[in-house]
Write a protein that binds this DNA or RNA. Structure first.
Lengths: 296, 296
DNA sequence: ATGCCGTCATCGAAATTTGTCATGTGCCTG
DNA sequence: CAGGCACATGACAAATTTCGATGACGGCAT
């Protein structure tokens, strides 16, 4: 441990351990930060020697934080929050107006909440009205001019040049191992709510893929679908982040599901300086961390 | 301005602008930080170009902060506060016990308050009882074992090896220009309260220096003395930080006042781990900023 | 067991950042 | 108007940071 007074926590190092936490591993974090793996490894090493304690329990595959690591992580989050807000605050211009924003339920508990809160603080003269709906509904509202922008899920091939990509998700057909699919018979399907837009894709493949789906379960929340899959009630289309160890990914016979993308999509209105700024802040957050942290 | 995402506020740079504020100028700040003047100048320059805005209105003599500078300063204070607390938190050991601490009124509104607050947060099992008295009283309480430690003012030549020096102060004889001192006659003296320990020094010089002081005004607070001097009521002994532009420093005929030092002085009790830590934190804060920031 | 794969540590070289010294500039004061 | 003070600037040296390559280690499947 170097002299008590000369020690300091580099902002970059804090961002590194934050990224390690949220991407689960040094290699992934390095990728997200746009650095080499060795650079991040070194950064943490330096941090550790300067603090005189271990931060990570290194192990290939599963990098875990020590108690000290978790503690630092907490401070890192707060310091980075202030730091980023300071940066924004210094480059801000006085904004006023109102923004009508749409979100999906999934994204409400992501870093977006922080971005929105901070935006409020930095631009008190901008009114942000937020509505939470499903992607299909939000897209319709955008079309009709009811929203200025929305965070929606779309198929990867539907992304428009003006969309801001938040992160990608892979969709999988899953089932519980105990569920055996009989050949030829119709497949029990665990479905999201009517308005879930990739449910439509799933039901359409009945025509093309030679697979007959029969909806045996409907639920608006992912938690419900997850439970139904685990209990062996049928097959479902689930995001990678909803997969559980006891689930089995189906690769054969089923058509490969399209990739999904979360995007910020703007409405038709042309000029809105406040919205420009908000979107820019979201973009900046993404490029800094290589994607948004999303609770799974 | 570099790319929005790659910008970052170095902790050291933040500490630099903080030091500039609290020492009034780059040169002084550099000294306090243990760096060269050009290093600090460079640091700020880099900070400015990375932010794309001016932080300081440079001028010889009076370095003023711009609006952006003031804004950053606010964030800097908060970020540094968190940063330093994180650092301490990671090197802390579980402490318990109680500390009886004495302070002078002057030091209550300095950075000490922050240090004490932080100490409370980091070591909730340590009870800190603080009493505010004048230096002479505190020294007596230390002797009698009523305090574990105290922040007191002493003459520079009285500093003990075990004292921790917080900062030095120069004492001056001052008067208002309108006050003419007649030769031979007794000098009207504006005095602190009975217990002010350098009042004793002032009155004693009647014997040695051939100067006869006559106390015409007594007041416990510096503000009262300052007002009395400004109104031309007499001469007084004042700290540098209490000097006002309309005051005149008296150099001739009066004996040179001894320098003063604020120190942390510990009581007689030998072992107290909690106190050790608190004193270490104070020392660390001092060496980091080259002295304590004290409201004048 | 054995070999493969993914993850991380470590090393030397290259690139970047940071600090120092020496010097230049502008401003205030006597 | 000279001298001093406070800050800026440029060149160079030192330290730090990054990268690419390589090696070590553990998990996993054969």
């Amino acid at each position: 441990m170097s002299d008590l007074n000369n020690r300091r926590l580099e902002i970059d190092a804090l961002r590194a351990i934050w990224a390690i936490r949220h991407h689960g591993g040094i290699t992934r974090a390095a990728e997200a930060l746009g650095l080499s793996q060795s650079a991040v490894s070194h950064k943490i090493k330096r941090l550790e020697t300067s603090l005189g304690c271990e931060l990570l329990n290194r192990r290939a595959g599963a990098t875990a934080f020590t108690t000290a690591g978790e503690e630092l992580l907490d401070y890192a989050g707060r310091i980075l929050g202030l730091h980023d807000e300071a940066l924004l605050s210094l480059s801000k211009t006085a904004l006023a107006g109102r923004i009508a924003l749409g979100l999906t339920e999934d994204t409400t508990c992501s870093a977006l909440a922080h971005i929105l809160g901070r935006f409020r603080r930095l631009h008190p003269d901008v009114t942000v009205r937020t509505q939470v709906r499903m992607s299909l509904v939000l897209r319709a509202m955008l079309e009709q001019g009811e929203l200025d922008a929305a965070i929606v899920q779309v198929f990867a091939h539907e992304v428009r040049p003006t969309d801001v990509i938040l992160f990608r998700e892979t969709l999988h057909w899953v089932k519980h191992p105990s569920l055996i699919l009989p050949n030829g018979a119709s497949v029990p399907f665990l479905s999201f709510h009517d308005d879930c837009f990739y449910r439509h894709w799933a039901l359409d493949i009945g025509q093309d893929g030679g697979i007959m789906l029969e909806t045996v379960f409907e639920c608006a929340s992912a938690a419900g679908i997850v439970a139904a899959v685990s209990s062996g009630m049928g097959v479902a289309l689930l995001n990678e982040r909803h997969l559980r160890p006891d689930m089995q990914i189906i690769n054969d016979h089923f058509p490969v599901p399209p990739d999904l993308v979360y995007v910020v999509r703007r409405g038709r209105k042309v000029r809105n300086a406040a919205l420009d700024t908000l979107v820019a802040e979201i973009e900046s957050e993404i490029s800094r961390y290589g994607g948004l942290a999303l609770a799974s």
